[in-house]
């Protein structure tokens, strides 16, 4: 990984990769959403509201996957002092928080017609809301340390921020197992190692939207990393000029 420690080398790969991830991702997620809206049959019990599945599940995956990325970046920053790790962590935070919010919003919209409620404090919903607040905390900490010019060599992510990112990862397995450990209103996992309890005729667009949103998310992270690197370059030059 330290091959990419040099920002110039990283950018040489990241520049063309951004478009190669963004457009196929966008195409796939739009195609998957369209298939999920018009081609799949309605659910026997829920009817057409089941179509929210095709965006709710990728949103949950990206919200949780995003924090896993922040935790891995924090580990790379704290242990290996990788210069791009902090940049990556900061780049993931905003889209990760957005998709956690989208997961909560679509879940709420789905809950009203199926369960009969917009919101209940059950294990799954509460732990997902905690994840959203963790994102807000991480963003606030990272912004503060970046603004104060601390940790300039770590992409603006201070050690405290990185530790916060690492510690917050405890919530991820809790979200995942919440419907198994506790009685909850949210149903249990549909897709497990044993197979899927979603019939194949309803399942297939989910693969498209999952892959599409994931590629798109990676492209957004690259864009934000490139922005941070360019901003750092400008700031470093300004400081050198100021010092004369």
């Amino acid at each position: 990984m330290h091959r990419f420690a040099n920002p110039a080398r990283f950018l040489k790969i990241a520049r063309p990769l951004t478009g190669w991830l963004f457009w196929p991702g966008l195409l796939l997620l739009i195609a998957g959403a369209a298939c999920g809206l018009w081609l799949t049959p309605a659910d026997y019990l829920q009817g057409d509201t089941v179509r929210i599945l095709y965006i709710h599940v990728p949103a949950a995956w990206l919200g949780m996957g995003g924090w896993t990325g922040i935790a891995l970046a924090a580990l790379m920053q704290l242990v290996w002092r990788h210069p791009l790790a902090g940049v990556a962590g900061r780049a993931i935070a905003a889209p990760g928080a957005l998709f956690t919010a989208i997961c909560l919003a679509t879940g709420s919209i789905w809950g009203r017609p199926t369960w009969g409620t917009w919101w209940e404090w059950d294990g799954r919903m509460t732990s997902m809301l905690v994840l959203f607040f963790l994102y807000l905390g991480y963003i606030a900490l990272a912004n503060a340390s970046a603004r104060q010019g601390q940790a300039a060599g770590q992409g603006g992510v201070s050690t405290v921020t990185a530790i916060f990112g690492l510690v917050g990862a405890v919530n991820i397995p809790i979200i995942n197992r919440s419907v198994v450990w506790w009685n909850s209103l949210h149903q249990g996992p549909s897709i497990t190692l044993r197979g899927s309890s979603i019939d194949g005729s309803l399942l297939w667009p989910l693969g498209l939207t999952l892959l599409g949103f994931t590629l798109w998310f990676a492209a957004i992270v690259l864009m934000r990393m490139r922005a941070i690197l360019a901003q750092n370059k400008v700031e470093a030059r300004m400081q050198r000029l100021a010092r004369g």
């Binding site: 026997y44 199926t114 209103l185 149903q187 044993r194």
Partner: peptide, 30 residues
């Protein structure tokens, strides 16, 4: 009252057909 549904999703035509219990069992605790 709140309705709680299980983790199975299928089209209407399949409703009432035998559920494959070997690949993904129905949980009994709920």
């Amino acid at each position: 009252l709140l309705a709680k549904h299980d983790e199975r999703y299928m089209p209407r035509e399949l409703e009432g057909m035998n559920y494959n219990e070997t690949t993904h069992e129905m949980k009994t605790e709920r």
